[in-house]
Design a protein around this nucleic acid. Sequence first.
DNA 1: TGTGTTCTATTTGTCGACAAGAAAAATACA
DNA 2: TGTATTTTTCTTGTCGACAAATAGAACACA
Lengths: 234, 234
Amino acid sequence: MPDIDPGSLPERKRGSGVKMVYDLLRDEILDLKLAPGSPIDEVQLAERFKMSRTPIREALVRLAGDGLIETLPNRSTMVSNIDFLNLSTFFDALVLMYRVTTRLAAQNHRAEDLPSIRRFHEDYSAAIEARDTSAMIATNAAFHAAIAEAGRNPYFAGLFRRLLDEGRRILRLYYQSYDEHFPQQFVDEHAEIIAAIEARDLEAADRLGKVHAEQIVAQVQKLFSRTGKLDIAL
Amino acid sequence: MPDIDPGSLPERKRGSGVKMVYDLLRDEILDLKLAPGSPIDEVQLAERFKMSRTPIREALVRLAGDGLIETLPNRSTMVSNIDFLNLSTFFDALVLMYRVTTRLAAQNHRAEDLPSIRRFHEDYSAAIEARDTSAMIATNAAFHAAIAEAGRNPYFAGLFRRLLDEGRRILRLYYQSYDEHFPQQFVDEHAEIIAAIEARDLEAADRLGKVHAEQIVAQVQKLFSRTGKLDIAL
DNA sequence: TGTGTTCTATTTGTCGACAAGAAAAATACA
DNA sequence: TGTATTTTTCTTGTCGACAAATAGAACACA
């Protein structure tokens, strides 16, 4: 395994270790650098990050809280599997949260929210031109998470962020098998969504969020039905 | 502080300590036995449960993940405050989740789900007759959580459970000031909801969930506007 | 050779101790 | 007396070590 070696400084600030481990492992899981089902070894991580098992363990507890890893009592802990059998429940929740958060953003956003939303929009566009799959997926999630923040409902934003995380893993599979297909269409839809939010057009925002979500869901479902779902994942 | 002393057995099973601490603290927080803002001392908890700080800490990390406590870096950790200024976002999320989970239960429930739902319904009814406020609040949350489970969407169920938890704290305030008022009406509404679920009437379930939720929200809002919100909480 | 049992090894859960950070107390100084 | 600085104290974050639990290996036995 390539050692990422975060800085090679033996000097770390007191409370920063857990956050670093948490963030790094989270990204590696969501980018499928750590495959679903692969085991997580506390001792190995402790050596890799040059710290004791205690902060490693705390990071793992938090990841388990996010549902990203699963721990069997007294036995191994592993990266959570993607539940392909219940994908429809995931899509249901995703579509509804797309709608709700976009609508609330149109209703509750402030002027200062738009620049950061636009910035993620541009990052996403740039990622598509650069054909950088990881960046594409991450910036898309960041774009919609920013919209959810502008909607100013922390409960919806929290669920949506979790769904977008899980979506990062699923989209990863999607783009691994179809590298040549890049959704320019999504860029245009993002622009429309921004316009509806800025115009405070609740109905349009709702409708566009719904269409955009169903667009993505349909593409992923088409892919999975064509490939037979499991040959990629297992 | 009254020492609850969980069994006074020095013999505990290996992995059970954290769960016990987590469950107990969670209940104490949700029942307002631990007031919002009150400090949490790891050493004190370690002595109370007769275990080392390590498992205590793990339980606290999980509670922080649930948003029930907040930790200031290198400084104290305390029970999360109830955000009265943003109550409307809470109510928005609550109403939508009432609707969605009830509708999904009408759509996806299986025969074996109904007995446990009915049992919580009866527990709630019994709690009202017994004038047991804590039990009333807890069984009401359990009733709706069971409906959400029957809806078989873990994402919605997870958010809803979190909202019901927060609702337990808010309802606690509500009933502390109006002990004499007991909502028999809610029992009847619960019965209607069960009937709609059993009949697989999606629209009725949706509508009843919405009405039921707005009923509760309206009562709590009326109370808070009458008392000026903060004199109870602070 | 197949099955049940004991032993070993690895990994997790828990512990007690120590050190860093920050608030509070004590002191110095104008 | 009021303010700045040092000291003290108390809590948290981290560490290394040990013990329990489990899986797998080694073994016994038919």
